[in-house]
């Protein structure tokens, strides 16, 4: 592919431009921390979104437990206070959407949330019903992003979601997978359907997406959400047993969470990484990745080599 290099340059330039512009954008500016927030452009619209989002799988599924709900509210508050926008959930996550709704209702928000959930039902006729239910649970009028979860009954759901997008009932449409499953089918959908977002697993220890999905997302102007950035916790647990290397600190990275997340969002085709956490202190660590210098290609490779040896 002779023009890969060219495309990569274009992507890098585009990403750099998005990062540059983000510093002057309203929204992040009124924050307690003065540093500009790292934002990424959503290709479909040109709108920008903070490059670190929040997942809710397991972490927000706490049911009606008042103590746990209160604690998760603090996690979400920390996320939003530090400039986070995109929150990702799904009807598959048990009570997570209800817990999110409870937390959102008890937080006074001035800055825009980017609400992303999914359709997850084998019933091809239940798309609208499930979106409406999620809106109710979150306590919002309209989702920014609605994704077909794990390609379940995707043809029918996608058709309805695209119609809803046309009608202004949601803003963006996407499709998700994880753990490297069904990438071929995903690629086909990315080529053939007018989707705005794709979500798949991508982390320093699982770089399969770099082969085809990320280049394709860039080529097709599709925003890319990286799920399982810590491999469900296994990756960060493993690296945290080792000291954070001095050379990484000198390069401007704050800690392991910061390094693992910045590794992801430094890829020019990535729009947003969505780590999940149940802890405020972990959320603080993760949100550091929204500020400061991003690693260049050499530093990314050094990080990958270093982590592979741990």
């Amino acid at each position: 592919m002779p023009n890969t290099h060219h495309r990569r340059r274009r992507q890098l330039l585009r990403a750099a431009a998005a990062g540059l512009i983000a510093g002057y954008l309203p929204g992040g500016s009124a924050r307690a921390v003065a540093d500009p927030i790292i934002k990424r452009r959503i290709p479909a619209s040109g709108e920008t979104v903070a490059a670190i989002g929040m997942g809710t799988w397991i972490t927000f599924n706490v049911g009606s437990d008042p103590r746990a709900r209160q604690q998760r509210t603090e996690v979400l508050r920390t996320f939003l206070d530090r400039g986070g926008q995109l929150v990702d959930s799904s009807p598959m996550y048990g009570s997570a959407e209800a817990v999110l709704g409870h937390a959102l209702a008890s937080i006074e928000r001035t800055d825009p949330l980017f609400a992303a959930s999914k359709v997850w039902t084998p019933d091809e006729d239940a798309t609208r019903e499930q979106v409406a239910r999620s809106e109710r649970l979150w306590g919002i009028d309209r989702f920014d992003l609605m994704q077909v979860h794990n390609l379940v009954a995707w043809e029918a759901h996608l058709e309805t979601l695209l119609a809803m997008r046309e009608a202004g009932e949601l803003r963006y449409v996407g499709i998700t997978t994880s753990h490297g499953r069904r990438h071929r089918e995903l690629e086909r959908i990315m080529r053939e359907r007018p989707i705005d977002f794709v979500q798949a697993s991508y982390s320093l220890a699982n770089r399969e997406a770099e082969q085809r999905l990320l280049p394709l997302a860039a080529e097709r102007d599709i925003a890319f959400i990286a799920n399982r950035p810590f491999q469900g916790g296994r990756l960060i647990d493993r690296v945290k047993r080792h000291p954070f290397p001095g050379w990484a600190r000198e390069a401007g990275l704050a800690n392991w969470a910061d390094a693992l997340l910045k590794f992801i969002i430094a890829h020019p085709a990535v729009t947003c990484a969505i780590p999940a956490t149940s802890r405020v202190d972990h959320m603080r660590e993760n949100m550091q990745a929204l500020r400061g210098p991003l690693p260049d290609e050499a530093l990314r490779e050094r990080l990958a080599r270093h982590v592979a040896r741990l």
């Binding site: 972490t59 048990g94 753990h179």
Partner: peptide, 26 residues
């Protein structure tokens, strides 16, 4: 086949949708 391969790729921990702490809290 694709579906089977997909299901076989799950590990027990992947199917657990709550944390040990949340289970204990019950």
């Amino acid at each position: 086949m694709d579906t089977l391969a997909t299901w076989l790729s799950y590990r027990p921990g992947d199917l657990l949708m709550f944390s040990p702490e949340t289970y204990r809290r019950l």
